[in-house]
Design a protein around this nucleic acid. Structure first.
Length: 694
DNA sequence: CGGCTGCCTG
DNA sequence: CAGGCAGCCG
């Protein structure tokens, strides 16, 4: 097909001004996309809004036979593609193409065919949405009322369902969760404060070192730089450099470094060292150049010595600081792999391809996933994307293929390349964790992060990085990093957990607690091993959900290697994911609707914060016990200029980009719809943070 | 037919 | 979250 043609088409419909016009355009787009959906319908539940809008449109007599093959909104298709592909993760990739293969159907036909279905669906969601009444932003606009009316169920049965749904609307936990949230906020603040102190300490030390350095050189003019800022800035910029280097896939590095915690630590330290060295080294160099004329030779000798000393000092200092920070942050009994350099970077589409030292653990994990997810053939593609990343992306379920051979082949399981690795993996044993437990998670956005410059946040920080990205536009304003607390299993055990989870006791915490305990005690004899699925497995699954919405049974087997799979277990797991999806999509739907009601017209205006319903809901559902800390950072939605030329397009896009949004809310690899129809045009996006392991 | 999904319900 | 059901697909 001709993606370009469609793009243009979309672009044409794009207008950026008058509200009336705006809504019209939006409607058009929506409608078109809608028709599209009707045709593909791969993803039920993705259309409510469009449906409503369509109804509205019809009422206004603004019917528009806008549905022609070439006129297909690339946006819509892409979006759909995302879902289609996701849905077909286990199926044939061709499904992704389906939309383009069926422009022959008339809108009418399609409407007729799916009308009922859609209505039911709509009604359902309507109810759900209606239940959001507590949300201040739910105020429906004039048009909404109309839509509501139009959306009325047409059959008694639907009506019935609707009522049922209505009743079910959960609202209870809202409160307690808020408390939780605030509690956590405080906690977070505390952590940040401490971190900040640590950083300041560090900076002080650095400053001292610098001074020493300068003294030795008797430098007089080197103070021009605000030395105080080095630690942070240099680190950051260094991170960029690293990123840049890493944009080149580094396979060897991706091999997970064998998951040796010690290794991680060492590496992390080494990195920090490097960074600091660079930070310190930079300025001196400049001075050196000045002094060169005076005595280059001696300078070199001295310089080397100095460098050595400096290195050592920095090394120790940094190590200490890092350790301290880590302690403060993770408080795990074994702060092993927790040491990670600034992790604060905006989702880097290339992060996946290139191992980024800065991401370390997180990245390792991701990497892992990336490998798992990206189908072999795509591997190459992925790397290609790096250069050709203009087109993009598509939310791919990690499970691209069912092909077990494929998977096993491309599955560099955390433990290495051995299939059972997952659990018996070195790390796991090293950590003293038993299979079903979350492996200790990852990297903390340690320093750096909390201090992200307010200006522009991550976005503005990496001038260098974006160069690799054809369009730095695919951005996202908020990224999330997630840090798990599971790592503090032991600790929590010994200490009291309460401080960490105030007011959370009632929930699954107890479960987790016991589970953790069990797991700890019987590292090898998981209470559930062999038997059914444990609560931990559930958690694992939930977490996993953020990486793959449609795990294949093979994948499940791999990630739940401690479970003896049988039909029952398998279907149970699958059922879980099904349930997850349901919930998840509903949340996305809500969010989308709410945002639109709030007047959001484009992705730029979208944001997911802790206060936002979406976040709360998701966190509630998938991270009830706050095993993982989800830190929100400014996020950016992914898109490319090709896909989104306007706010409307963006809106449309976003309307369907459930996955996208969720991925934004929660860390994990994200893939966005691609402009091309190539089934292979998928690219993993990394949002930051990840779980150490499942 | 088996496997899986979505949808609805409890 | 699980059970049931229907529909789709290989």
């Amino acid at each position: 097909m001709n993606p370009h043609g469609s793009e243009q088409d979309v672009e044409c419909s794009v207008v950026q001004h008058a509200d009336g016009e705006k809504s019209n355009v939006l409607r058009k787009l929506l409608k078109r996309a809608n028709s599209y959906e009707d045709a593909m319908m791969p993803f039920p539940g993705a259309t409510i809004i469009s449906q409503l809008l369509k109804n509205n449109l019809t009422k206004n007599g603004g019917s528009e036979p806008n549905f022609q093959g070439s006129g297909l909104s690339s946006t819509g298709s892409e979006i759909q593609q995302e879902d289609a592909c996701s849905n077909s993760s286990r199926g044939s990739p061709q499904e992704c193409l389906s939309p383009f293969n069926r422009p022959s159907m008339t809108q009418f036909e399609m409407e007729r065919l799916t009308d009922e279905h859609l209505r039911a669906k709509r009604a359902r969601v309507e109810n759900i949405i209606r239940g959001m009444s507590h949300s201040p932003s739910v105020t429906l606009r004039a048009g909404d009322n109309e839509r509501e009316g139009a959306a009325q169920p047409s059959s008694p049965r639907e009506n019935y369902r609707e009522n049922k749904r209505k009743q079910k609307l959960p609202q209870q936990q809202q409160q307690s969760f808020q408390q939780l949230v605030s509690a956590r906020k405080e906690q977070k603040h505390e952590e940040r404060r401490q971190l900040k102190l640590q950083l300041e300490d560090m900076q002080k030390q650095l400053r001292q070192l610098q001074e020493k350095f300068y003294q030795i050189y008797d430098s007089t003019d080197s103070e021009n730089d605000e030395d105080g800022n080095i630690s942070e800035d240099s680190m950051r910029s260094d991170g960029m450099d690293n990123r840049a280097h890493d944009s080149v896939p580094d396979r060897s590095d991706n091999e997970m470094s064998d998951l040796d915690p010690g290794h991680f630590l060492d590496r992390a330290r080494a990195l920090i060292r490097e960074q600091n060295m660079m930070a310190e080294g930079d300025k001196p160099k400049r001075d050196g150049s000045r002094g060169k004329s005076q005595g280059p030779t001696s300078m070199h000798a001295e310089g080397k010595q100095l460098a050595e000393t400096l290195k050592q000092e920095l090394n120790t200092a940094m190590s200490q600081v890092v350790d301290t920070v880590v302690k403060v942050f993770a408080k795990p009994p074994r702060p092993v792999p927790q040491v990670f350099p600034p992790l604060q970077m905006p989702p880097d589409r290339f992060a996946v391809n290139g191992e980024n030292p800065n991401f370390h653990t997180a990245n390792q994990r991701l990497q892992c996933f990336g490998d798992v997810i990206i189908p072999n053939p795509l591997d190459t593609f992925a790397s290609m994307q790096v250069h050709n990343s203009n087109d993009q992306t598509e939310a791919l379920p990690l499970v691209v293929r069912k092909n077990s051979s494929d998977q096993t082949g491309s599955l560099p399981t955390p433990g290495g390349h051995h299939h059972h690795s997952l659990h018996p993996s070195p790390l796991s044993s090293a950590m003293g964790f038993s299979p079903p437990s979350f492996r200790h998670p990852f990297p903390l956005p340690l320093m750096g992060y909390p201090f992200q410059s307010p200006l522009g946040g991550p976005t503005g920080h990496y001038p260098g990085k974006d160069r690799s990205s054809p369009e730095s536009l695919d951005l996202s304003r908020e990224t999330t990093s997630l840090r798990t607390k599971m790592s503090s299993n032991h600790l929590s055990h010994h200490r009291s957990m309460s401080p960490t989870h105030p007011g959370n006791e009632g929930l699954s915490l107890s479960l987790i607690k016991s589970e953790c305990g069990d797991l700890q005690d019987m590292s090898d004899i998981s209470p559930y091993s062999g038997k059914g699925l444990s609560p931990n497995h559930l958690k694992k699954a939930k977490l996993m959900f953020f990486y793959t919405r449609y795990p294949s049974s093979n994948m499940l087997k791999m990630f739940f290697s401690d479970v003896k799979f049988n039909r029952c277990i398998t279907s149970q797991l699958i059922k879980w994911f099904s349930n997850f999806r349901e919930f998840y999509y509903i949340q996305m739907e809500k969010f989308a609707r709410q945002s639109i009601n709030d007047g959001v017209t484009g992705v730029e205006e979208l944001s997911v914060s802790r206060d936002c319903e979406l976040f709360r809901a998701l966190n509630m559902h998938y991270n009830k016990a706050n095993d993982f800390e989800v830190s929100l950072r400014p996020f950016r939605l992914f898109h490319t200029t090709k896909q989104l030329h306007s706010p409307y397009q963006a809106t449309l896009y976003y309307e369907h980009s459930y996955a996208l949004l969720a991925k934004v809310a929660f860390p994990g690899p994200v893939i966005v719809a691609s402009g091309s129809q190539e089934p292979s045009s998928h690219l993993l996006y990394h949002i930051t943070g990840t779980i150490e392991e499942f």
